[in-house]
Design a protein around this nucleic acid. Structure first.
Ligand SMILES: NC(=O)c1ccc[n+]([C@@H]2O[C@H](COP(=O)([O-])OP(=O)(O)OC[C@H]3O[C@@H](n4cnc5c(N)ncnc54)[C@H](O)[C@@H]3O)[C@@H](O)[C@H]2O)c1
Ligand SMILES: NC(=O)c1ccc[n+]([C@@H]2O[C@H](COP(=O)([O-])OP(=O)(O)OC[C@H]3O[C@@H](n4cnc5c(N)ncnc54)[C@H](O)[C@@H]3O)[C@@H](O)[C@H]2O)c1
Lengths: 208, 208
DNA sequence: TAATCATCGTTAGTTTATTAACGATGATAG
DNA sequence: CTATCATCGTTAATAAACTAACGATGATTA
């Protein structure tokens, strides 16, 4: 899948959350440099992001928060509740489940799946844990498009194949393997270990 | 900090791990397209990565695994054990602690810190959990350069300021806030929620 | 009144990241 | 023996992401 403007989507999501808070605080305007600080880019980048959506501000007051929020939340569909499943209820999977409960109103982890019968057919942190054998039907019936993969590396590709076949279009993969997927499927890789190794690399470099 | 060639470092780390496995399997050569598949880039990119390190191969056999591993592991300092601390022993912090125990020989989480006295002064999954008040001295005495931040968003900046003052040079931040840090500090942001929101965005877009 | 100022929208330029392309190589097949 | 082939090293081209910079605006200050 084209990841087109993937980074700008990240920023837009953060802007949207921020201006929502502004709105609730009763503030009417926001400056590009405030948003720039929020996400860690230059004000020029922020202005460019907003230009695309024809959100116009004035040099005196900045951008009008209300219109800003309306346009962005409409584009980002932040009103729509997205149903998500999680596959692999291990240490990481449970951490995510317990974090997400009631945290984000527009994201809902509607079920989790595991191959271990000891872990399934119960509720964890408000989420149903079902056996993997029920996954295919569940995805189809509930029309799920987004999945989080938190199974061991060996199983990640197998799981990916299964869920894509069932209709999943967007995957967040925490397993440290590059998934082979058809081009229309969006895959985001979140490799915690790799990130730590990278940090370690720079630490050792800096020290010469 | 200059993130220079951050992406290529990620790939090099994966190549290194892969050729190590090759070596153990007794294979002598590897082709660029095999490495390309591994990390999800073109063979041209792989060849370019290796060119920098003067690792030369032949069109007939590919790249010699032994020299490949020697050069890369030397550059990546994968022999050096990097000491890491973790701050914030919540759900995510504990998941990481239990994952890392004995998993990566060159990375060691030597201690974890928390502000909650109920969670500290004990061992979790083989790692000492100490009270945050002992963090500064620990970083100094043990000469720690890498830290993982897994505290709530409100506390992340405070923690970052503390650890940077104590000497931390590389931070992996799991809290959903952009940290303000001096330019010489390497910060990697791992925002799980943002990644999920991004996936949800693409899922809703695809559906029109 | 006029100078100063921060910030705007926009265009141009820079940096980083990645792929395309091309001549060269030498093993293998006809 | 010669043509074909996959793959090499390398350079050029392209794409993505971001910053710099500039004229414009209008409020504020001198
Ligand atoms: N926990 C961490 O902090 C951490 C850090 C870095 C990377 N990761 C990666 O995240 C993933 C999960 O890590 P973890 O620590 O939670 O592992 P874990 O072993 O605790 O949990 C894995 C879970 O997946 C289940 N599972 C295995 N095969 C399955 C299958 N085919 N279908 C459905 N469920 C299956 C297991 O029963 C288990 O519950 C791994 O790929 C790991 O490499 C985790
Ligand atoms: N758990 C997840 O799956 C998940 C998902 C997305 C984002 N995150 C982010 O990761 C971070 C941790 O998440 P979590 O679910 O583990 O939270 P948590 O509330 O379970 O744990 C946070 C821990 O940090 C400790 N803490 C708080 N302030 C501190 C301070 N100043 N110094 C030291 N320790 C302090 C708390 O005592 C607690 O143990 C959060 O910023 C969260 O937004 C987590």
């Amino acid at each position: 899948m084209r990841k087109s403007k993937s980074r700008s989507v990240e920023r837009l999501l953060r802007y949207c959350e921020f201006v929502k808070k502004r709105l609730e605080e009763g503030k009417s305007y926001v400056f590009s440099h405030e948003l720039a600080d929020l996400v860690g880019v230059s004000p020029a980048q922020v202005r460019q992001d907003l230009m695309v959506f024809k959100i116009v501000g004035t040099p005196q007051k900045g951008y009008p928060v209300e219109e800003f929020y309306r346009v962005l939340s409409d584009h980002l569909k932040s009103g729509i509740k997205t149903k998500i499943i999680l596959v692999g209820v291990g240490n990481l999977g449970r951490a995510i489940l317990s974090y997400f409960i009631k945290r984000k109103p527009n994201l809902e982890i509607v079920a989790a799946f595991d191959s271990d019968p000891q872990k399934t057919e119960r509720i964890y942190s408000g989420t149903r844990i079902l056996h993997i054998s029920k996954m295919n039907d569940f995805i189809l019936k509930e029309d799920i498009k987004v999945a989080l993969i938190t199974v061991p590396a060996d199983s990640a590709q197998i799981v990916a194949d299964q869920i894509i076949k069932a209709g999943i279009k967007c995957i967040l993969n925490f397993a440290p393997v590059a998934l082979k997927t058809p081009p229309e499927v969006f895959v985001e890789q979140l490799d915690i270990t790799l990130s730590i190794e990278k940090a370690a690399y720079f630490a050792n470099k800096e020290a010469q």
